[in-house]
């Protein structure tokens, strides 16, 4: 099976004033299409940086990043943005919905940005699966955390991305809502073979994934 994500000796160094802060010190990662991978590790171990690089939000300092056959280290910012638009979906810990828009508009804007226009069949299927049909006309402030995260997942998958990157998706949720969100991610992965890379602190959340990768100090720990 072809890997959908491949990194080799991936390094990222942040420059804070005159100090260089290494966030990734040489990460080798392989994720196959349709896999559900959890990345766990303590704060500051480089998980979020890795996720941002895999999503094309930032470029690596050195090393190789192949995502769906595209080498991010050789792509311009505009190329990575275009790739992200069509191939990547993000789910964040803080939901990150646009506060001025309704749930419906928050989902639709992803389709608008992608440029393929509104697809009513896909829209209906996604909101049905995530159980947010009756919440579409509410703005984020009128939704519970669990509902907001389900809207965020709907927005992330509405354009059928190749990879769903989830940054602590249950970090702001109670146990019940965490379980709902994890079940939905699991369903997406199983029913639609959605590739998911999820960062989490929570071992129970990591347990729903096919595989767990542990990180520490900018490295991936051996199994």
């Amino acid at each position: 099976m072809e890997p959908i994500i491949l990194t080799e000796n991936l390094k990222k160094v942040y420059h804070v004033g005159k100090v260089d802060v290494p966030a990734l010190r040489g990460v080798d990662l392989l994720v196959h299409e349709g896999e559900f991978v959890a990345i766990v590790g303590p704060s500051g171990c480089g998980k979020s940086t890795l996720l941002h690089i895999l999503g094309g939000l930032t470029s690596p300092t050195s090393g190789k990043v192949l995502v769906d056959g595209n080498d991010f280290s050789k792509m311009t910012d505009a190329d990575r943005t275009r790739f992200r638009r069509h191939k990547i979906g993000f789910v964040f810990q803080r939901f990150n919905l646009l506060p001025t828009l309704t749930a419906r508009n928050n989902i639709e804007i992803a389709q608008h940005i992608q440029g393929n226009g509104y697809n009513p069949h896909r829209f209906e299927a996604v909101v049905e699966m995530l159980g947010i049909k009756d919440k579409l006309d509410y703005k984020p402030y009128a939704l519970s955390g669990g509902e907001q995260q389900r809207v965020a997942i709907a927005r992330a998958v509405i354009c059928e991305p190749k990879i769903l990157l989830a940054d602590e998706p249950t970090g702001n949720l109670d146990t019940e809502n965490s379980q709902v969100v994890l079940n939905m991610l699991r369903t997406l992965n199983r029913n639609f073979r959605q590739t998911i890379v999820m960062i989490t602190h929570n071992p129970e959340a990591a347990a729903v994934a096919d595989r767990t990768i542990r990180m520490r100090d900018g490295y991936i720990l051996p199994d």
Partner: peptide, 8 residues
């Protein structure tokens, strides 16, 4: 957020 969605 818009940029994370791929907005140019």
């Amino acid at each position: 957020i818009l940029k994370s969605l791929g907005a140019s």
